[in-house]
């Protein structure tokens, strides 16, 4: 299955992936309207220390600890894609405790959110991949 991978060597810590992600999942058609003067809730986040940086998002693990830890049955797996049903999420943060990558986080509404590879929005190829200026983020089979 194709997943998002990050080639740390090429990450410029420009943080554009975060902005494209938040925009893509806002449901709005205008980036300015979606992001201007609002707190940012991206599902991918750039980790950075000194000159080393890389973007982190859901690894879509073959043995997803978040799924196992979810007390509400909100996290499910379909053909390798780990998705969250935000209507079912009760906001207990168990998945955040369980995920070793820090790939889940609270959304604007308080319930959890995670990267779903842009499979559940209307953007096709993941927007972080499309928007990365240096092809540091790739969507491929490994």
């Amino acid at each position: 299955m194709k997943k998002i991978y990050v080639n740390e060597q090429w990450c410029l810590a420009c943080h554009l992936c975060e902005y494209y992600c938040a925009y893509a999942n806002s449901g709005l058609s205008d980036m300015v309207q979606a992001l201007k003067d609002k707190p940012l809730h991206p599902r991918i986040q750039v980790e950075q220390r000194g000159t080393v940086s890389f973007a982190v998002n859901c690894r879509h693990c073959s043995e997803p600890l978040c799924l196992k830890s979810c007390i509400a049955g909100a996290i499910t797996e379909k053909d390798g894609l780990i998705v969250i049903d935000q209507d079912k999420c009760v906001g207990c943060y168990s998945c955040i405790m369980a995920c070793p990558y820090g790939a889940l986080m609270p959304s604007e509404s308080g319930v959890m959110q995670k990267c779903e590879l842009c499979a559940t929005n209307s953007h096709g190829l993941p927007v972080c991949v499309q928007g990365c200026p240096n092809q540091a983020i790739v969507y491929e089979e490994r």
């Binding site: 410029l12 810590a13 420009c14 943080h15 554009l16 902005y19 980036m31 300015v32 992001l35 201007k36």
Partner: peptide, 13 residues
């Protein structure tokens, strides 16, 4: 300024 979302990519780059 109507369009700028203060993402700071200009500053970082």
């Amino acid at each position: 300024q109507d369009r700028c979302i203060s993402c700071r990519v200009c500053e970082r780059q």
